[in-house]
Amino acid sequence: MAERTGVDFSRLPEGCISNVLSLTSPPEVCRFAMVSQVFFSAAASDTVWERFIPSDIDEILLRAVDRIEFSSKRELYFRLCNPILINDGKMSFFLEKSSGKKCYMLSARQLSITWTCTPRYWRWISVDNTRFEEVAELLNVCWLEIRGKLNTRQLSQHTRYAVYLVFNLSKASYGLGHPPQETSVKLGAHVSSHITRLKTPLKTEYSAYGYDYEVVSREDGWMEIELGEFDTECGDDGEVEMKLMEIKGGHWKRCLIVQGIEIRPRK
């Protein structure tokens, strides 16, 4: 670009370069930082990274379980790209690394799970490789229903979000492939619903229902399945409701381990 226009951008004031970089995106800033020492310095400026950090970050950090230490806005941004626990450890918050969009996971303790996890049917356990102190383990039920909700004021505006149930299955899991489950994500008049299965059924168990989404393995060792999607608008303070429930009850099932429901921007 400098050759075509005859402009040496590295001779611009560092503050001017920082202002321009703040109008790009985090990945682009990191690429520009490799152009020259001047760009490297400008790319580290608080002016740049403050643009990518949510305006309500101070309020969010007040809800953090552990104090978040940082020496610059750039350091804070990348610290928040890894989940932090908030709300007494019942939720986690993080930023999507490529955009700075806000993401949340509601822990199992924050959800409504079939009769509020009655000990006869569910139990609370501690496992490795989870964000939360406890997860919910299904012992034995004939009706499965998991619900969650979140006010969209906590999310980024003008963003399409997808909702995922994060779970695992133990070796003794049973009854989670058939019959299928129905999911729904509701915000105002908008409803996104699907038919899904938490476990791939045997060929003899397939029915006319079919299913829309399959289970996906996550890098953290858990699994997830999409429940639906929704869009946020400027100033929208509605409550998004998320649900997974059986289409037809009366079938016993066991050994489902629920970590929570994650809400993150659709890619």
Rank of each mutant, 00 (worst) to 15 (best):
S217R: 08
L111S: 03
E3S: 12
K203G: 00
V35R: 00
F9K: 06
L155H: 07
E239F: 00
R264H: 09
D220C: 10
P83E: 01
W222K: 13
S18L: 10
V48W: 10
L106G: 07
R160F: 00
C142G: 06
E219Q: 11
K267W: 03
Q259I: 02
P13I: 14
N19C: 15
G210M: 01
C30Q: 12
Y174H: 12
S72V: 14
L144Q: 06
V127D: 02
G228T: 08
N140E: 14
D212P: 01
P27S: 12
K97G: 05
A136Q: 10
C234G: 06
R67K: 12
P179W: 00
L138F: 10
S156T: 15
G177P: 07
C16N: 09
I195K: 07
Y174S: 10
K253T: 03
S184V: 01
A189C: 02
G188E: 05
I17F: 06
H158F: 12
L150P: 04
D128T: 11
H194D: 12
I17C: 02
I263V: 15
F52P: 12
F40R: 15
S207C: 12
E133Y: 04
L150I: 14
Q181K: 04
L111K: 03
R131L: 15
L198P: 01
M223F: 05
S36P: 09
C117W: 02
R197E: 06
V38T: 15
P179Y: 00
D56P: 08
S10E: 08
Y121P: 06
L12C: 07
F94Q: 11
P13G: 09
Q110S: 15
E133G: 14
E133K: 15
L198Y: 05
W124P: 13
N82D: 11
E14L: 13
I17T: 09
F52R: 04
S217P: 03
K253I: 02
I125A: 07
F93T: 03
T200E: 10
A44I: 09
L12G: 08
T118Y: 11
R31P: 02
G188A: 08
V216S: 08
T196H: 00
A43Y: 00
S156L: 14
E205L: 04
D88M: 05
L62A: 09
M1V: 04
T232W: 00
K73F: 15
R79F: 03
F93K: 09
L95W: 09
F167V: 02
S18G: 14
G250E: 06
T130D: 05
E3I: 07
W222R: 07
T130Y: 00
I146R: 03
S156I: 13
A162E: 15
E59F: 06
Y121I: 05
F94E: 06
Y121G: 06
T232Q: 01
I261D: 02
V258T: 02
Q110E: 14
C16L: 11
I247C: 07
K97Q: 11
D128V: 01
